[in-house]
């Protein structure tokens, strides 16, 4: 890993967005992911080095989050720092110079309005190099199927936080598997268990975003 990669990784992990951001206090008035990415690209760093830095930083914070060592705000700040770095990569994505690993479609199932967990999963998965299509909350099976049609090689993530919306999750997985058996489906949310995932035919269950990112990386490789 290059020095650039390590520097970006640290800024993403610490959630240092830009110079103006007061967070974290010990990095006050120092350059953030925004300035450092721009400077690195200007002085000839490869876009892939930046992307690797984002991935490494998000992976590290994601792991600490799984261990309850950091909380939602820390993950959110890291995701913001990641976005600040990624903004500079946009032209390089468009030109095809750096590539995403694939498309990840995510949504919270019908009847369920909880989106904090889903959003964290999208951020971490995005940080690991995937393009995200976020369908929002209260998403019906048909909407998922339409999105899959538009992105045939995608993987899909479903979130449910209520025991009363677990049946909707089960129906959505069944609908996806019927229409598009090769599409990998990941599920999660506080009441979801591995047994439930097995029972309803989902490909992966993870209690946290990092597990989803890890699964996608290995399954895609």
């Amino acid at each position: 890993m290059s020095e650039t990669t390590d520097r970006i990784a640290l800024l993403v992990k610490r959630g240092k967005i830009n110079k103006a951001s007061p967070f974290p206090p010990d990095l006050k008035e120092q350059d953030g992911a925004d300035e450092q990415t721009k400077a690195a690209l200007d002085s000839g760093a490869k876009p892939s080095e930046i992307l690797d830095g984002c991935m490494k930083g998000m992976q590290e914070i994601g792991t600490l989050f799984s261990q309850n060592k950091v909380f939602v705000p820390d993950l959110l700040m890291s995701a913001k720092a990641m976005s600040a770095a990624m903004a500079h990569l946009k032209p390089h994505f468009q030109s095809g110079e750096v590539k995403r690993k694939g498309t990840f479609i995510i949504g919270t199932v019908t009847g369920d309005l909880h989106d904090i967990g889903k959003n964290l999963v999208s951020m971490v998965v995005e940080g690991c190099g995937w393009e995200i299509v976020d369908l929002g909350v209260d998403v019906g099976a048909d909407t998922f199927l339409e999105a899959i049609e538009q992105h045939p090689d995608c993987a899909v993530g479903l979130s449910a936080l209520l025991t009363t919306t677990m049946p909707a999750m089960s129906q959505t997985v069944a609908a996806i598997k019927e229409k598009s058996p090769q599409t990998r489906v990941l599920i999660g949310g506080a009441p979801i268990t591995r047994e439930f995932a097995d029972k309803i035919g989902a490909d992966c269950y993870s209690p946290d975003p990092q597990g989803a990112a890890n699964y996608l990386s290995t399954a895609a490789a």
Binding site: N68, V70, F71, V72, P73
Partner: peptide, 11 residues
Amino acid sequence: TSAGDFRTMMG
């Protein structure tokens, strides 16, 4: 938390 103390999701 896994360490056994209590926190909201925001810490």
